[in-house]
Amino acid sequence: MKLRLKIWRQQGPHAAGEFVSYETADVSPDMSFLEMLDVLNETLQLRGDVPIAFDHDCREGICGSCAMMIDGVPHGPQKSTTVCQLHMRHYRDGATIVIEPWRAKAFPVIRDLVVDRGALDRIIQAGGYISVATGNAPEANGIPIGKDMVDRAMDAAQCIGCGACVAACPNASAMLFTAAKATHLGLLPQGQPERSHRAVNMVRQMDLETFGGCTNFGECSEACPKDIGLEVIARLNADFLQATLKEREGA
C-alpha cells in the first residue's frame, strides 16, 4: 500500500508547529498504525530527518500511552480501538491521512504528537482513590458485592487514561475520565465513605486544570477506546449535586 501522511511536526513546547507531508510506500495491511509510523521513522532517519515523536508503550491497547488524532477522530476510525491496535487493513491504497496531537490547553504539546497529560494524574490525586493504608484491609470476602454491581464498576474502571475523551470533546472537557473513576469507586461499598468528597474534589481539580465543562455532546464516549458510557457522567453529576446538598462543611 502507498499512503500520503500529513503529520503535525512541532519541535518543542514553545515552538510553532506545522503539518508536513510524507509519502510512504511498502505499507503492509497487517501492520499496526504505529508500525507504519515506525517504518516511516526508519526511512526518515536514514535520509537524515529527525523521526516523529509519539507516545507509545505496551502496543496492546491497555497502557494508554498512544494518543493521536487521525483524520479528526481520536485513535482513528475503528471503534473501541487504540491507535496501537488499529491495523492498516482498514485503509485503502493511496489514502491521505491527517495525524495531529490531542489539542487542549490542559494537554500542552511537548513535541510532534506527544502531549503532557499530567492533568489527569492530578485529578486522581484530588480523590481518585479509597483511603486505605497497607495492612488495614479487612478480609476480602467480608463484604459481598453483587456481580452486577462489580461488573458495572469494572466497566468504568477500564479507563486507560489516554485522554481521547478530552481530545474528542468540543469543549475539551475531562468529564468522562473523571466520572469513570468516580463511578468505579462510587459503585463499590468500599468507596462509599469518601463518595461525596471524592466527587467534589475531583471536579474542582478538573476545573482548575483548565479543561472545559461538559455539555453532553456525547463525543467522548464514542471516542473512548474502552467504551465507557455517558452513564458515568450522569452519576458524577448526581453525586456532585448530592454532595453540595448533603455535606456539612466545605462540601
Binding site: 484491609a137 479487612p138 476480602a140 463499590l188 468500599q190
Partner: peptide, 22 residues
C-alpha cells in the same frame, strides 16, 4: 492472601460470583 484483602479494600473490582463472593 493479604494482597487480595488489600486490593479489594482499594476498590479493585475482582470478578465475583452471583452471591457476591470472589
Amino acid at each position: 492472601a493479604n494482597i487480595i484483602d488489600q486490593c479489594v479494600a482499594q476498590g479493585v473490582p475482582f470478578a465475583r460470583e452471583y452471591g457476591g463472593l470472589l
